[in-house]
Nucleic acid binder design. Sequence first.
DNA 1: CTGAAAGCGCTTACAG
DNA 2: CTGAAAGCGCTTACAG
Lengths: 351, 351
Amino acid sequence: MAATIKDVAERAGCSIATVSRFVNGTAVLTLETRARIEAAIHALGYRPSELGRSLRRQATRTVGVIVPSLTNPVFAASVAGLQARAREAGFGVLIASTEYDPAQEMAALDTLLGQKVEGLALTVSDPLASPVLPVLDAERKPHVLMFNQADRPGRVCVTVDNVAAAFAMTNAILAEGHRRIAFLAGRFSTSDRSRLRYRGFANAMARSGLVPPSPTEVDFLIDMPDQAVAPLFEQEAAPTALFCSNDILALAAIGALQRRGMAVPADVSIVGFDGIALGRMVEPPLATVHQPAREMGETAMEILLAELREHVAERPTFLPFELRLGGTLATAPAHAAPSAPLVAQPQWRQT
Amino acid sequence: MAATIKDVAERAGCSIATVSRFVNGTAVLTLETRARIEAAIHALGYRPSELGRSLRRQATRTVGVIVPSLTNPVFAASVAGLQARAREAGFGVLIASTEYDPAQEMAALDTLLGQKVEGLALTVSDPLASPVLPVLDAERKPHVLMFNQADRPGRVCVTVDNVAAAFAMTNAILAEGHRRIAFLAGRFSTSDRSRLRYRGFANAMARSGLVPPSPTEVDFLIDMPDQAVAPLFEQEAAPTALFCSNDILALAAIGALQRRGMAVPADVSIVGFDGIALGRMVEPPLATVHQPAREMGETAMEILLAELREHVAERPTFLPFELRLGGTLATAPAHAAPSAPLVAQPQWRQT
DNA sequence: CTGAAAGCGCTTACAG
DNA sequence: CTGAAAGCGCTTACAG
């Protein structure tokens, strides 16, 4: 078995209290005691048990994080950012992933609360429908949403303004002369981000006097959106641009279109949302709305730390987004509808 | 504060032992006691503390996992697989990421051992150089390497045979008539996988009577391998194919080449390694060696569970890989060296 | 500068 | 069927 504080104390010929003080640097000790304890620790390979420590201190110095998936680099990046900040503050991070299944959210929360995490950062399917938020409220557990937008005024979240971002991007697409723009969306029921981005898109379309088309919803876990994309381009007036609610979808859509023999962006422009690294690597680079995912995790952890320290709820934080234009977003083909007067670009926070 | 077992016992008018038995279903209780305890638990929102439980049981039912990065979907997938199996077995998973920095491996291990994980699954930079493996040996901690190949006979790992896989893929490239093949590699010092794959590549080249070119090493964290790729294509006899040690690198290389005005695979064939989902989405699909990353995590967890149950070290497991040909791998351009007699395809495990 | 002792939230023989 | 009590590995007043 692993050595305990008792083993160290025995070997060093002192009390466990003294060992504890040495380990935590919480008292001044004789040079000699110090040396004996140090030797004992080294010889036994002693490592303090966070279990005993946490139980005694009534604080685990641990936070939990719940994300829909670790395989989507956007969430992975936020977790990485959160973890980095946590480490700096001496906090551990417990991660649970729900695989985009809302039904798993409660189980994940149960596990994390059982581990006595002091706070949580989470991205749920839909804050308005998630059962975990009320539980968090009832338990008065400090928590912060990432990527999601708040379901009510008092809720703390850190995200970008999805509606405004999609609105801005849609105007940029319109500015390239596109009029027939389709929206490819991750299922609304499993992503409020998707829904909010569609709303921004629809708002911008309407403001330009266009009728926003219904969204084409696709499941996240299907590799190929080929079937979803097909009907769009079999109709009479096919879209000249496709706004996808996230980058993975957008990259997949590019492949789907190319398999149909269409060129991007010559025939169809493609726009994504997220700003994953891979989008800048492909050629042409993916036009997208970049949101600072890693920073989102960092900010979430900072908010959590502040709440734990000061016992005061922080305020919702909107991080700036950034439009990455060009690349897969080009001017609408000449044979498309002639360009009409455009509305002014809306304002958005710029880095 | 959160309710404890004592609070429940008081409210239900029984001893904490009885509450414990109810919660764990470890004894038969009167219908009445059961009802009273259930009511108390519900009213107080009681959730057993894993801390107390673990301390008392002297078992945390938790494993740790160390990966180089969560942002690389290959590692994310293995973690997801491991987590799924762990959940089934009632185990928790603590995740630490080293950001491809070998120096962080020890710190990660310290943290996890402090949390008293019962076993570990890990991917280190290089098993031959990693300081964590000897510690794991000294502590007699059950552990299993993922993706890495073992540094010595007794070490348990689950991976694909990287040398054989790269050997097979290189022969497939040669079979397309390519003779000038470059190897773009993640830094050897931070990836034994990269080194082993190069070895398989070099073996295959040599066996075909060709002189294997030196690898072109690139840092993982640099987004654009454009600078690394440039010198290769500025020389007299530019390569007609590029074998990249992983898919992210391969996708980035495709972009880099296209930015240089070259077509893939018409001018240059590109081959990756890993088989990430995105590789199948892009057009043309990425030629690559697919390794079952998620399954690797699942298998790692199964091995760990077996070791924890039976206290016997399992044997190294090689999972089957699969060559995904076509797509970005095409026949060498006509003006390239004429094709020579080819060696027979080596055997490899096929799904 | 150091030690004895209480107690954090649990589980589990041992009794009855 | 249920309870009293010990003890898992720690930290921290309280003494001296």
